[in-house]
Design a protein around this nucleic acid. Structure first.
Lengths: 197, 197
DNA sequence: CCTTCCGGATGACATCTGTCATATCGCCGG
DNA sequence: CCGGCGATATGACAGATGTCATCCGGAAGG
């Protein structure tokens, strides 16, 4: 029996997926949580074999959760096939990556594979991540763009990062150019679509 | 037996919810579609009693679908409790509004209520929509902000709407002020959070 | 009928943003 | 050791953005 912990913020989805997985003879959902920060306590209590984590969650996102639990069998389940998510997940030791558009069979197969020590990556997502290439932004450019995405002005970003305004403008300009955008708004959208900020 | 059509773009979610609803003795999912533009043909073919529509879908969003089928028993199922969504849905004659964070029982109850000609609004969403009040933006302000949200510059917006640049700047400035934002980026985020653009 | 009000429209002005040329620093390969 | 490279940092400048005072026209109300 494969003991699974399921983390997703939407109760209906969580309940429903748990039900589907419960139909599989060899899979048992032993815990369900709706917030990222509740995963660690639940893991301690139930000692599941495999963690199925949604990326978008309050408290702590699924990728951060994965990064905080190295060595465990984990699988990311997400609505958004963002290349950056896949890279972060793999770097964190996650061995399974399944889109919510997958079928229940695909999810069950992925869980078995991950439990057995293997990998399961959705073919389309893997291809998209390959095509997209790596994150071209430097750390500072990402910092600046992430703050801009929250609506911060150049002055506010400069204050946050302890830089002069000119430098911040420069980072944003570089980011805009690297992302093939025309202004900061399209740059923010592009970076978010790729899962880079 | 209540015959239900289920429209949601994520297969796993669709399958799983169909399974949950199938457990209810009086509910039967007679059709499932993954795109908004496939709802109309499926309705013609299966003649369901109640339509359960996700807002976020490719092809055609759930609210537009609802607007195109007046008089039918419909229920909106969404991840995002945006006040503007609720208003648009009610205006389109939708009688049920359920967040994906609801329980399966709540969804089933809502479907029965809507099928019987009643209404079911998630209490929290209804309260949020009340608190938020109505969309304060005029039509032109919305047009301009929606284009800005796609990354368009003032010049491009002006060309699209057949206005001078000054007028466009004015609309955006009004929108920023009405939304309590400090620049167009925060204004865009605020308007999107409320479901106003 | 006249007034008031509000959305729509305009251009001038101050400020903010994006680009560019340039400089410094640490690191790697020759 | 030295040159080259890329990340970081800076300020000047041009162009884009946000604010303001103002005007126009139709709807609501006296």
């Amino acid at each position: 029996m494969i003991r699974v912990l399921l983390a997703d913020d939407e109760r209906l989805i969580r309940q429903a997926i748990a039900m589907l997985l419960g139909l599989e003879a060899d899979i048992e959902v032993v815990a369900q949580v709706g917030r990222g920060d509740l995963v660690a306590p639940a893991v301690r209590e139930h000692e599941p074999d495999v963690l199925v984590l949604d990326v978008e969650m309050p408290g702590m996102d699924g990728l951060s959760v994965a990064e905080s639990m190295p060595g465990r069998a984990m699988l990311i389940l997400t609505s958004f096939g963002r290349p950056g998510y896949l890279r972060r997940a793999l770097a964190a030791g996650v061995r399974g990556f399944v889109p919510k558009d997958a079928s229940a069979e695909e999810l069950a197969r992925a869980i078995r594979k991950v439990h057995a020590g293997g990998r399961y990556l959705d073919p389309e997502m893997a291809a998209a991540a390959m095509t997209a290439g790596d994150n071209p932004l430097t750390e500072r450019e990402r910092d600046a763009l992430a703050l801009a995405a929250k609506g911060a002005s150049v002055a506010q970003i400069a204050a946050s990062l302890h830089l002069t305004e000119g430098t911040v403008r420069n980072y944003l300009s570089n980011a805009i150019s690297k992302l093939g955008a025309g202004n900061r708004i399209t740059a923010i959208r592009a970076a978010q679509d790729m899962g880079w900020i």
